[in-house]
Design a protein around this nucleic acid. Structure first.
Lengths: 172, 172, 172, 172
DNA sequence: AATGAATGAGCGTTCATTCAT
DNA sequence: GATGAATGAACGCTCATTCAT
């Protein structure tokens, strides 16, 4: 792939992340092209369908999350994801399945593995109760991201809400 | 309002609840009219925009929830709402703000009051920790409904997830 | 169906016949709407897909042909169809299957029956040789319509070409 | 012209003949490039517009036909062309003018001359009636190729259809 | 000369909304 | 009040053509 194509692909992804974060997955592909400063055909050359574009954003965001998971403990990562939920509206919305046909088993799987490692560490450190399993941790994470995203929580509310969950994880 | 108009309004609301529950808020207004057995013009006469129709459904669903809240304790109500989340897809999706412009301060306020009463009772009974406030209870409720709706949780996962939250509420 | 809808449906069909006759089946549906003096949505309300519109034209043209067949002998009908081929470009082109997904077995079947009756009469009158079958008469008819349509034949050429075929039908 | 350019030109023509034979003239130029194993720019360097490419194929096919005409009598050539019509979908379709702007006076002229020679031989041999002229022979040829191409004739129908025309040519 | 990324007009289609009947 | 036909902006997507690399 040529250098300029590479650059355009990145610009389209950046624009798409911003546009879909702002307007949700129903924003038009034209708007993405406009924001990226390319013609509509260029978007479709890189991502043959809109769903492909959405899937590509998701994958990138999830990959970033996995990286960030490696540098934090479970509670810090939980907090970070919730704080970023609004900025990463697309992830939350698409995980929520807004009518799009997107399959990202791998990327989601990697995130789950990363969280699984954090959970084991937390259990080993005695800060999470033994019977807590990965499945409900993921469920809580997804839920609270959705909640934070759409609820327009301020920092206080976010902290208090997470405090309840963290208390539950410790003293299950 | 004429009797037949009254009747049509109710049929449209029923149809809309069913249609939007099945297909989400992106379902077409025509489909609602078809299911209600009225012409499209009649839908728009009763609800001048699609958002008005969605708001009306929401209001009705929230009112039902308030009634149900009066007959349960906090944990039971929490569990009920999560269990119904999928069936009432519309509530969750619209609370999630899928691109629609909907404001329902009153109906949401009533629900909040009802949950507030449950919270006080729970605190009085000593099954919820003193510092837990209504705001985070509502936040958790909304979040977990979203999560349950879009996550396709089975009963076990739902129970385990709620168990974490309930533990947190008790031993905050 | 309302009177105005009926009228619009007819106008759309007329416009479509003219437009597709002039530009072939690849002409845009917008152009049909423009020529009919209606908005694009109206065309799609009456004919949910472009193929439906093309099929409707075909059906109407074939029906007209069947009527005309009833009032002529085989040679006259043959001549008439060839003479009209250019004006009815769409029939010829679509019978030629220009990539469209159109099925009109009934209408085509009726035409075939009508030609079959003409053939029997012609055989009875002794102006067509006994072994000539309907299949090849239809094949010749379709072929020469195509030829006349695309070849831009003048009247003389048309007459001389048909003369060969008619001679062949008589003295097979 | 460089040797590799020469080679590319031939490969593009071969690919185009195959692609357009399979999908008709509406097949995309990209598909031709793909099949030829060259980039799309190379196709447009050799043939500045799609129509130029189609014209080039036509010319080549017509040239082949002229050669084949030299080795057969009128009836055999007629039969051959009809039999090949489907395989050479492009010729028939483009002669049919599927919206393309193509002019090939020379190549068509050469074919016409070749057929003219066959006609003279046939007349001299007494197997074609004296008044039959070249114009209607060409018209019949073009027509029946079209018919065979789009009608999906089996061998029997093709034989019977041609039999009528041949009878007409002999006993005009 | 070849590449292939970029362009952008154009297409078929949908659907919230309006308004004549 | 009810009907449902009409509207037209907007969308996802295609593809002939251009041009920087």
């Amino acid at each position: 792939m040529r250098a300029d194509a590479q650059r355009n692909r990145a610009r389209i992804l950046d624009a798409a992340e911003a546009v879909f974060a702002e307007f949700g997955p129903r924003a038009s592909t034209e708007e993405v092209a406009r924001r990226a400063g390319v013609a509509i055909g260029t978007v479709f050359r890189h991502f043959p369908t809109k769903d492909d574009l959405l899937a590509a954003i998701m994958k990138r965001l999830l990959t970033q999350l996995v990286e960030e998971a490696g540098q934090r403990d479970l509670f810090a990562f939980f907090t970070l994801m919730v704080a970023q939920a609004a900025a990463k509206k697309t992830v939350a919305d698409l995980l929520a399945g807004s009518g799009m046909n997107i399959r990202l088993p791998d990327a989601v799987g990697h995130l789950e593995e990363a969280v699984g490692r954090l959970l084991e560490q937390a259990r080993a450190a005695g800060v999470v109760a033994a019977p807590v399993r990965l499945a409900e941790v993921m469920a809580l994470l997804a839920s609270v991201c959705q909640g934070a995203l759409h609820g327009g929580w301020d920092e206080q509310l976010q902290a208090r809400t997470l405090a309840v969950i963290f208390a539950g994880l410790k003293r299950y």
